[in-house]
Write a protein that binds this DNA or RNA. Structure first.
Lengths: 208, 208
DNA sequence: TTACAATTCAAACGTTCGTATGAGGGGAGA
DNA sequence: TCTCCCCTCATACGAACGTTTGAATTGTAA
């Protein structure tokens, strides 16, 4: 087991504690204690609490969107099959699953943190989404648009947002729900993701 | 204009401030100031902060679920048409719209508060939902089940939860999104609700 | 080893929070 | 008018918070 730097321990501990207790309900004192360091170390390495949380978020958001856009690139560089809507939705939804299965469980915790940040309308997250990742989100929206010609542009826009809402909701709900299931955590998450992809696909597919 | 009691002013102010700033980010001092009363009045009327928030939530949750179950009763007492799934979904989703259009705007604020409470996994809300309202939610799930025989029971369960997630997400998002639209607030909310109902319907309808 | 920078530490500061207290205000009934 | 009770008020308390500071410690290059 490699020894982590104080900075890394603080980031990981922050991620873990926020995934468990939410953004309010944690203090720099509990973070520094659980990270086995001193209270002042947080301010030394990150300046203040807000910047610590921002760095904790930023650290993994790039990974998440990179996974998403790489999958979309693969899809679009190949020949566009007539019914690849499912793959587009999967490219958006599955990276959450991928990240949640990383070997140190940090990714899984992060998805819960991300869900909480969405819910609490973090201004920092909102800025990041509307600046750094807006192009990627727009690319997904346009891809879905092309695969759903029976729906108007605005309806596709709405439904994409509803799907994102459902994704965020189940991510936030995952921690609690999986405990009441008799499946293992990863089985439960796999099932959840598959159901979500089928759900999203059905919501965008013409009915008979 | 009728004069409201201190207790009512505190409840309304709490609802308003939490809908704007979230559960964290408000203090009893800001509540009492905006309610034009004294700090100690909160503890006098409600005991403590937690009970104040619980009473604020409870006050309207009964109304919301009563609206829902009344609509469902109407549907089920009438002759069951073959394609009434849309009406069932509407019975679940529309009361949020109805409440949001009450004359004093209190309902609208409450839907935002409710969305935040969902997101923050309020234990009090969770208890209320799994005790007082569990039967109503189960009735909706069973009604949807009967109208979606092409889907397995567990898939219907998942999709109903995804739809609730989307509903909660748009409720929480509503305040911010409507400001960037050129529609009026109520037009925007109406549009949003209709889109959500059609989305939910599509997600449960067999594809061609 | 020495010198210097990077890091960690204990301690303290000022602020804000939820809660508690006791005095004062004002209407209703005797 | 007097009394009682419901309510409002200013004020205080202790706890917890984010942040700052300066000294102690550690690591590193000469």
């Amino acid at each position: 087991m490699t020894v982590l730097s104080t900075k890394e321990r603080i980031l990981n501990t922050t991620e873990k504690l926020i995934s468990e207790k939410g953004f309010s309900g944690i203090s720099l004192r509990t973070i520094s204690t659980h990270a086995k360091t001193n209270l002042a170390a947080v301010n030394y390495h990150f300046g203040n609490k807000e910047k610590l949380i921002e760095m904790m978020l930023e650290r993994r958001l790039d990974t998440l969107f990179e996974l998403r856009v790489n999958l979309l690139d693969e899809l679009e560089s190949g020949t566009l099959k007539p019914c690849n809507l499912k793959h587009i939705l999967k490219a958006f939804i599955a990276p959450a699953l991928t990240m949640s299965n990383d070997k140190h469980q940090g990714g899984k915790r992060f998805m819960l943190v991300l869900a909480r940040a969405y819910a609490e309308k973090s201004e920092f997250l909102h800025n990041l989404l509307s600046k750094r990742y807006a192009d990627i989100i727009k690319r997904f929206a346009q891809s879905i648009q092309r695969s759903s010609p029976h729906l108007s542009e605005s309806t596709v826009f709405w439904r994409f947002h509803f799907i994102m809402g459902a994704l965020i909701y189940v991510m936030a709900d995952f921690g609690a729900s999986s405990k009441t299931s008799d499946l293992s955590e990863s089985d439960y998450f796999n099932l959840c993701c598959n159901e979500l992809i089928e759900f999203a696909l059905a919501s965008l597919t013409p009915s008979k």
